[in-house]
C-alpha cells in the first residue's frame, strides 16, 4: 500500500472525490467502504474530477454517483452498462466507472452484462454483491443461495441455482475479472486502479455485506481470503480457478488481452458529399 499512499499525495485526495451529500445506506453497509475504495482509486489514478463519470442503475449501491463529486448518471434499473457504453463511445476521453448491485446487474440488467463483457468497451464495472434486494427490503437476488428462506416473496427459498458472476463474465468475454471484499477497502481500491488501467471491459465483483437483510454476512470477514495465485491471461486456467472457488477468494482471476471496442470513424466527407448521391 505504500506506493498507493505515495501516489495519493500527488494530486487530489480521496476526500476531494466525495460529495457532501449523506448516503441513505444503513450503518454497517459494505457500500460505504466501496465508496471509499472508489475515491482512493481515483486519487491514485490522478483523474481530474471533470474527466470521470460514474454511471449506475437502481438499488442501494446504485446511489453512489451522488456521493461522489464527479459527473454521474443515476439512470433506470438495470441499464447502467448500456448508458455507460453510450457515454464511453461518445466520449472516449472520459474515465467511466459503472456501479450497481447484484439485482441491477445480473437480473434485470443481465443481458446488458453479457453484451458489455463481449463488446469490451473500456469501462470498469463494480458490482456490490450482497445477495439480496435491499432497497425493496430483502428479496432474493440472482446470487442468493437457493435455500435462503429470509424473504416473504420466496418463503421456501428460491430453489434456483445462484448466478455465477465471474464464470459468466469469463464466458461472455470480459477482459479483466476480479473479486474484492468491502471489508478490505484498500484491496478493492487496488483492484479498481488495475481495472481502470486495464484496457477493455473490467469486471469487479465486490462482496459488500447487507447487515440489515443478510446479517449473517458479517461472517464473510472470516471466510474471505486473498488469492495466492498470480493473475492469469489463460482463459481455461482462469475458468478452472473460478469454477473451483467457493466464491470467497479475492484478487484478479483473469487478465485478458483482447483489444477494446474501437469504433471506426473518420472525418473525410462533408454532408454535402453524402447528399450528392441522392441527386438525379
Amino acid at each position: 500500500m505504500t506506493a498507493m499512499e505515495q501516489a495519493v499525495g500527488a494530486g487530489l485526495q480521496p476526500k476531494d472525490y466525495k460529495s457532501d451529500y449523506k448516503p441513505i445506506w444503513c450503518p454497517g453497509c459494505g457500500d460505504y467502504s466501496v465508496l471509499t475504495s472508489i475515491t482512493k482509486a481515483l486519487s491514485v489514478l490522478g483523474v481530474a474530477r471533470e474527466n470521470a463519470a460514474v454511471v449506475s442503475g437502481i438499488g442501494c449501491s446504485s446511489r453512489i454517483p451522488a456521493y461522489t463529486s464527479l459527473y454521474g448518471f443515476h439512470g433506470v434499473h438495470g441499464r447502467a452498462l448500456a448508458l455507460a457504453t453510450g457515454l464511453k463511445i461518445a466520449r472516449p476521453d472520459l474515465t467511466v466507472l459503472v456501479t450497481g448491485g447484484d439485482g441491477d446487474g445480473f437480473s434485470i440488467g443481465g443481458n446488458h452484462f453479457l453484451h458489455a463483457c463481449r463488446r469490451n468497451v473500456d469501462l470498469t464495472y463494480i458490482v456490490m454483491d450482497n445477495q439480496v434486494y435491499g432497497m425493496t427490503k430483502g428479496q432474493a437476488s440472482p446470487t442468493t443461495a437457493s435455500e435462503w428462506e429470509g424473504s416473504k416473496l420466496t418463503p421456501h427459498g428460491t430453489g434456483v441455482s445462484p448466478f455465477q458472476p465471474l464464470a459468466v463474465a469469463l464466458a461472455a468475454g470480459a477482459n479483466f475479472i476480479a473479486r474484492g471484499y468491502a471489508g478490505d477497502p484498500n484491496g478493492v481500491a487496488r483492484l479498481i486502479v488495475e481495472g481502470v488501467q486495464h484496457p477493455g471491459f473490467s469486471f469487479i465483483q465486490v462482496l459488500s455485506q447487507c447487515v440489515t437483510y443478510r446479517a449473517e454476512q458479517r461472517e464473510w470477514r472470516s471466510r474471505v481470503r486473498p488469492s495466492a495465485k498470480e493473475p492469469t491471461a489463460n482463459a481455461a486456467r482462469a475458468s478452472r480457478r473460478i469454477l473451483d472457488d467457493d466464491g470467497f477468494t479475492t484478487g484478479i482471476f483473469y487478465l485478458g488481452s483482447r483489444p477494446p471496442y474501437q469504433p471506426v470513424t473518420a472525418t473525410d466527407r462533408t454532408l454535402a458529399d453524402i447528399e450528392q448521391r441522392f441527386v438525379i
Binding site: 463519470a53 454511471v55 448518471f73 439512470g75 433506470v76 438495470g78 441499464r79 448500456a82 448508458l83 455507460a84 457504453t85 453510450g86 457515454l87 464511453k88 463511445i89 461518445a90 466520449r91 472520459l94 443481458n111 446488458h112 453484451h115
Partner: peptide
C-alpha cells in the same frame, strides 16, 4: 432497452 440507454449516455456526453 440498451439502444435508448446508450443514446442517453451519448447525449449526456
Amino acid at each position: 432497452l440498451a439502444s435508448i440507454n446508450m443514446a442517453v449516455g451519448g447525449s449526456f456526453g
